[in-house]
């Protein structure tokens, strides 16, 4: 299983803070493509964290990974 956390406007667009999916080997990029279609959202400027570290789109997701969709940040 993998978990996907959503924040800020994405959380509102998707309507959920946490999504869970059964595990299937794929890249971060492939997952993003699926999410864009499923939820009709634009993830072009989204960064992705895997287990609380920023990850490249080519990263292969492992079973149990916790992903996060990180919109452009605006802290400070």
């Amino acid at each position: 299983m993998i978990t996907v956390k959503c924040f800020a406007h994405l959380e509102e667009q998707i309507g959920s803070h946490t999504l869970e999916f059964s595990y299937k080997e794929k890249t971060v990029e492939a997952l993003l493509d699926e999410l864009q279609i499923t939820y009709s959202i634009n993830l072009d400027s989204i960064m992705v964290a895997v287990n609380e570290e920023y990850a490249d789109q080519k990263t292969i997701i492992q079973d149990g990974d916790i992903l996060a969709l990180i919109p452009p940040v605006s802290g400070g």
């Binding site: 072009d44 400027s45 960064m47 789109q57 919109p71 940040v73 605006s74």
Partner: peptide, 28 residues
Amino acid sequence: IVPIWKKEQWEDGSEWIGNQLETVSGVP
């Protein structure tokens, strides 16, 4: 790089702020 987001409450609505630094997709 710090995953914190600001939602501004204006007189005429609210808005999630982002892209202050024109951050682009991918590893920072």
